[in-house]
Amino acid sequence: MIEIVTLCANASRGAVALECEWLGGKCGGAPAIVFLAKGTIDPSSDWPARLVRTLGLRGLVCGLAGGLSLRDQARDILPALFEALDIDPRMWIVGYREGATIALLYAAEHPRGLAGAILIAPRMFSQSPQVAHLLRARAAFEPAKLRERFACHAAHHEWTIEGELHGLRCPLLAIRDFPDDDGSAASHIDLLELHAHRADRLETHAHEGTAEFPPLDPMIRFISAHSPLSR
């Protein structure tokens, strides 16, 4: 059942109401997996329930707050929500696109807290084809001295979380979405692989268009291998 969790106002924002849905029951301790939905929860999407059921764990699906930046979601909203629900920080976070970006930012802010994160089609920078081309080219030629040359161009285009990726420490599984026409889908993963070298483990999974999306099998294997709850 979907319920509304209201976060009290603070110095930088008003009160925020979030949709949340418990998977596997609300009682019995903190959830093992937190899923970040986009906006409101889609009740027709049943793969989170199938994932936690297969693993024998509990889960919590969280809608994202509207009108706030991805960094505000990661640094303000998620910590406030976890505190309000008394959730143990040693959890898994699963996010898709914007949710994956928020999961990365949260993981970078809490490098020793998370059990791990699963990132489905994460976004590391704005979807400008020029930015995608520049960042992918730079990743391909690192550690050659091209950083300064590309940085001056990429800096003029909206946003990137490149600077935060060095803080990642927990195990990470990145799943590619269907390829974009401009090739940026691969560029996001390239940038993650370049800067997340301090993560305990980083694996990538290339989704095939004929397979189920998101693919549950690689998630099940990864969580089973790396979760403290599975040992």
Results as ranks from 00 to 15, higher is better:
163 G>N: 11
201 R>F: 11
170 C>I: 03
183 G>A: 11
211 A>S: 13
187 S>A: 15
190 D>C: 01
208 E>I: 07
215 P>F: 07
167 G>Y: 04
200 D>Y: 05
169 R>I: 06
151 A>T: 10
210 T>N: 10
204 T>C: 13
165 L>W: 00
151 A>C: 09
214 P>Q: 10
160 T>M: 14
148 E>N: 14
182 D>C: 05
188 H>I: 00
184 S>W: 00
168 L>A: 00
187 S>Q: 07
163 G>T: 08
192 L>H: 03
191 L>G: 00
199 A>L: 05
178 F>Y: 06
208 E>C: 07
178 F>K: 07
158 E>G: 06
211 A>L: 13
157 H>T: 08
159 W>E: 08
167 G>P: 01
177 D>C: 04
160 T>E: 15
204 T>N: 03
155 A>R: 09
193 E>R: 05
181 D>S: 13
180 D>Q: 09
159 W>L: 05
203 E>I: 00
212 E>T: 14
162 E>I: 05
213 F>R: 02
150 F>K: 02
209 G>K: 07
180 D>F: 01
171 P>I: 07
205 H>N: 12
151 A>E: 14
211 A>N: 12
151 A>Q: 14
176 R>W: 06
168 L>R: 01
212 E>D: 15
190 D>T: 01
176 R>Q: 14
162 E>P: 00
152 C>I: 08
173 L>H: 02
174 A>K: 03
210 T>C: 05
192 L>Y: 03
198 R>W: 10
151 A>Y: 04
155 A>P: 01
169 R>M: 10
174 A>C: 14
179 P>S: 12
165 L>I: 09
181 D>Q: 11
172 L>Q: 04
212 E>Q: 15
162 E>K: 05
166 H>I: 15
188 H>N: 06
157 H>N: 06
150 F>T: 15
202 L>H: 02
201 R>D: 14
181 D>L: 12
214 P>I: 03
157 H>I: 14
181 D>T: 10
170 C>S: 11
147 R>V: 11
197 H>T: 15
176 R>C: 09
153 H>T: 07
166 H>F: 11
200 D>R: 11
203 E>A: 13
204 T>W: 01
173 L>Q: 04
195 H>V: 02
148 E>R: 13
181 D>C: 07
204 T>I: 05
188 H>T: 00
196 A>F: 00
199 A>G: 10
207 H>D: 10
182 D>Y: 06
189 I>N: 00
190 D>Q: 07
